[in-house]
Amino acid sequence: MYVLGIETSCDETAVAIYHSEQGLINHNLHSQVDMHSEYGGVVPELASRDHIRKLAPLIKQLMQESRLSSADINGIAYTAGPGLMGALLVGATTARSLAWAWKIPAVAVHHMEGHLLAPMLEENPPEFPFVALLISGGHTLLIQVKGIGRYQLLGESLDDAAGEAFDKTAKMLGLGYPGGPKLSALAEHGTPQIKFPRPMTDRPGLDFSFSGLKTFTLNTFNASKKTEQDQADIAAGFQQAVAETLSIKCKRALQQTGLKRLVVAGGVSANKQIRAALTEMTAKEQAQIYFPRLEFCTDNGAMIAYAGCQRLMAGQQQGLEIFARPRWPISELSQTTD
């Protein structure tokens, strides 16, 4: 079964074709990061305007490059949420209408399900069940994954998402937008001079909170001489605190569930120090760790095509309603409560 996947939930326009036996056939992406950086953050209306400019040409190009004809495609998967309403609507409407014209089924995919299944596109995919840590600009989630569509939320951020904390902290340090990757690059030149807090690790539970850490970082920066070295040291202290906090919570999640497999996905999972800390922790715990390849850590069409293919094969599909849901808790995907 060939499935076309379409993703437009935030600031990347992405498409891909996945085959149920042959795996990923092809994928294509246009990033809006440069456009939004001039505005200091994602401007939702501009994101929607760019998606509608880019999506149809990307689909056309993907079909041509893949040497597939319309008759080959058996289904279309689109990101229905969570995300920006206007942005989601472009992908959902185009996808649903194209599926109507092709007389093939369409299925709505949860963006975070796409992320947590992204390691399935790799050569050595994890087996179920596993614990998944999803860390991106919009989410910080710990999920127990029992199978496709069987997700139990273990913990989440009570305030800022991990990626949001990175971007906001970078902005406070004067690194511009999107500052997360810049902050990480700067951190490599620094050494933490003081101990930053590890939020919510001194009490039981698997929830996160990053806004206090952000404030601590700002206060530390304001109290410093604000030299380049201070900046780098503070970036290093912040990043180390995030990495360790994530690591402590993931260890707890593995112990609590008794599972030995950890999947880490989402844009922030591209962060080297976070990868290193989590890899070290899983080695000590004698657990396996799985990451998507770097290009599939961030938003992409491949993960949507993959997740959609699984759902279509399980017999799911949407009617003619164009489905978009900006707020969509992942826990609502589970049909079973086991």
């Binding site: 509608i52 149809a56 206007g86 609507l89 599926a99």
Partner: peptide
Amino acid sequence: SFTGVRIATAVIQGIALGA
């Protein structure tokens, strides 16, 4: 309405791509 206009555009683009 910006969103409304984009819905019409995306519906027509989807059908145009398909047919």
